[in-house]
Design a protein around this nucleic acid. Sequence first.
DNA 1: TTGAAAGCGCTAACAC
DNA 2: GTGTTAGCGCTTTCAA
Lengths: 360, 360
Amino acid sequence: MRRKIVTIRDVALLAGVSVSTVSHVLNGNAQHVGAIKRARVQQAMDELRYRPNAIARSMVKQTTATIGVIITEIDNPLFIPVIASVESVLSPAGYHMVLASARDIESEIQAIETLRSQQVDGFIFMSLSLYYPVDHLVYLRDEGVPFVLINRSVKDEQFNLINWADEQAAYDATEHLINLGHRHLGTISGPVFNDPPRRSAMERHHGWLRAQSDHGITVQPAWAIVADYTYEGGYRATQELLLAKQQMQSGPTALFVASDMMAIGTLKALHDAGMQVPRDIAVMTMGDSPFTAYTVPALSTFELPVAEAGQLAAQILLDWFTQGSPDGFQQVTLNLTKQIRESCGAKIDHTASKPPLSPH
Amino acid sequence: MRRKIVTIRDVALLAGVSVSTVSHVLNGNAQHVGAIKRARVQQAMDELRYRPNAIARSMVKQTTATIGVIITEIDNPLFIPVIASVESVLSPAGYHMVLASARDIESEIQAIETLRSQQVDGFIFMSLSLYYPVDHLVYLRDEGVPFVLINRSVKDEQFNLINWADEQAAYDATEHLINLGHRHLGTISGPVFNDPPRRSAMERHHGWLRAQSDHGITVQPAWAIVADYTYEGGYRATQELLLAKQQMQSGPTALFVASDMMAIGTLKALHDAGMQVPRDIAVMTMGDSPFTAYTVPALSTFELPVAEAGQLAAQILLDWFTQGSPDGFQQVTLNLTKQIRESCGAKIDHTASKPPLSPH
DNA sequence: TTGAAAGCGCTAACAC
DNA sequence: GTGTTAGCGCTTTCAA
């Protein structure tokens, strides 16, 4: 990019005016500039193909109109709609986005340092959804740096924090299954045993438990298998569950699968085992993948409002920049949307549908 | 980000040295600095929590160590692995990435201007895979700005250009079907009738045609349906095909679906119509979605080496920066990887498998 | 080995 | 209205 650079000075020279005049027309303070000179300046800029140097401007304005987006799990499909929506609100406001990825705390700290030295005006942190230490974020906050966290596992109340109502959605999904008549529920959980633990996985698992508890259903621990949110994980966990069922001579009639990627694996494993969904087993899941509508059978799911999270995050930052540091911090929990399709089946008939397994 | 900024001057003052000395230790020119002073400077930096201002540095060095990535179709899953891999090679080299999206030529031109004024050192353009005019890219090239195009539809030979071997993969996929014994082939094409046309769709369609031509198979135009690379499109196109089949009293025994997203829709439509894959109809597709392994049945596909494209693009730019402007431009075509699973079925037996539709 | 000083391209008082 | 000028934080000759 090292052409011979055309500067504001060149323009001033050609237009026969001073640099400050050029600067004024550049910044729209055109009221302070006579029409004749303004035209001359415009023409000189065009002639010279002048392009203002944003770096130099940032230098004096002490602001870059750029926000840093730090993402983890760059392979997580979730972050596409997020950055897309962040971009969609930032861009019209004249803000830019620099991206950095960080798969752990160390590289996150590193990324923050680098972006700060690049003078970004704020941050969006996307999704290191483990309960990691957040000392560096506390520090950042105390320095007055604007940032917002999306889907982040923190317990501290003092951040701008956007989360999804994972626990409630899992509860609702499970309850939906219960209302359909199911009394024997299994689950494929996310990575609940991670260390540090992962918020969404914990919450979703908890929602599954709570719904059953509220309905007086006894949880069968052998029917709760832990996986890792991937297709493969869902596939293997389902095989495991089927094995347990075989050994126990009894299995769940309905499954809550804690992520739609896993649910795809579950569907596959069930199919490979010769089981039909929802006839032999009902399935509910949650997530944001548009694929769920096109699986066979189509998955009943709770959809994450992912784009909303990104928009909101960007808007919080923008407001901060324009209106100055806010009084408190925003804690937003976005609800998921119920999407009933085929995999959860219809209401089951307890009196007729099953052979007399239990006296009930 | 407007704390009271700690500058190199503050450090110099505290350490009792000159700014240029601080600058030297900052830039590793430590040979020129005595050990005692060096230590003093280090300590002062730590004490003040000094963070060098990259903006100021860029200002004098005339380089930002940042490359602009302009993507279109931000909803296209393809670009995730691309930017992930771009980041993975840029980051270790100390380079950053600023993202902009542009869904048409006008906004692309706009994005280029903005990023240039931000003094990015180069560009990666990702995937406006239509034959749009490229005057602005020619201009960019002639100005000596480093950039590379990924999956871009251009005919000009004078760009760094990374593409996938779409035509060949489509040819191979079709030939695979032919080798399996199929003689009646259908296709769900991408948006071939777009204006301007879309390279990958055209090429894939052409590959499908060429393979049949090479094997002396007569193409049945009614079995070639055009869609738009989406699930929905694949679903609807397949329904259309089924309708045509019904009206003609004969249909294809095998389908080449030009993208895996569409193929998911195809599978669904086929299932909804009560047809079994591959028994009733064989399916081959191509793309980069990891989902294909988990559909029912698992999709036979040609996989796009997407990450490779990103790495290559980033590397070309990095080499340019370190070794200076190259002599020519690189034109790379990356081959897809054959992945045979269930949906294409096994070799079919012409003598026995079908009721005597034809005397053959 | 160290320091003084001249910018990098731009903005914003402040004069005129 | 328009021009002069002092920086923004840093690197880099060039002298000492």
